[in-house]
């Protein structure tokens, strides 16, 4: 597999018709990867009950998606499901687990806590506000906790991302999702100031202009008879 992925693009690309072949290889590789996402047995809070235990059980049957083989070691796992809040003490360990996983590795953040800190957003001294502060996250599954159906939707989204968004020409490049955390350098205060400016701009009204813009008012003249004596 290593030879296929590392050498083939360089060999085939210059040959006429080679890029078609690479595209076919892409399809096969991505099909295989997306249908054998082995999750890491890693649960930090109550979402783990829903995500890894309920979905892995026969009623929900995670095996339909080829993702039932929960691995106890990060070296054999492809998918890290961050199920629950990450505390500061856990953050280093989680980063270590992520670094130990083999490429390509995928991360799903399930539940409010893993997305943004959730109910622990304020006044918490230990919760990391969003797992994407520590590792790059591919798919976010909202909920508190999400239902298994939501988890499956997230898993299918990830499979779709793998099938469509990757190529062996550029290993490691994939479509990034929208980040939940604020971008670097922007604080809530900046957003508030900007929002206040919008609100002030929207609520500053030129009365004459506003009155002129009322099309219904212009039509009033048509409705009221000009030489009516009844008024």
């Amino acid at each position: 597999m290593g030879i296929v992925l590392d050498r083939l693009p360089g060999i085939f690309e210059p040959i006429p018709g080679g890029s078609v072949l690479i595209t076919s290889i892409d399809a096969i590789v991505n099909w295989a990867r997306s249908n054998s996402l082995w999750p890491l047995a890693f649960g930090t809070k109550c979402c783990a009950i829903e995500m890894l235990m309920a979905t892995g059980a026969p009623h929900q049957d995670l095996a339909r998606f080829g993702a039932e083989v929960a691995r106890q070691t990060p070296r054999q796992a492809d998918l890290m499901v961050i199920a629950g809040a990450i505390v500061k003490k856990m953050a280093l360990r989680m980063r270590l687990l992520y670094d130990q996983m083999a490429e390509p590795r995928y991360v799903m953040a399930t539940g409010s806590c893993a997305i943004s800190g959730g109910p622990f957003m304020y006044y918490s001294y230990s919760i990391v506000r969003g797992a994407d502060e520590i590792v790059p996250v591919d798919v976010y599954v909202p909920g508190c906790p999400p239902r298994p159906e939501a988890f499956f939707y997230g898993l299918m989204t990830l499979q779709k991302m793998i099938r469509q968004g990757e190529t062996i020409r550029k290993p490691g490049i994939r479509r990034k999702p929208v980040l939940a955390a604020l971008p670097q350098g922007i604080t809530m205060d900046d957003l508030r100031v900007e929002q206040r400016e919008w609100l002030q701009r929207d609520n500053t009204v030129d009365m004459a202009k506003a009155a002129a813009q009322k099309t219904w008012a212009a039509r009033l003249e048509q409705w009221v008879p000009k030489n009516s004596n009844n008024l």
Binding site: Y122, Y123, S124, Y125, R129, M188
Partner: peptide, 8 residues
């Protein structure tokens, strides 16, 4: 704590 957020 510098990381403690407080709602405004």
């Amino acid at each position: 704590d510098p990381d403690m957020l407080e709602p405004a």
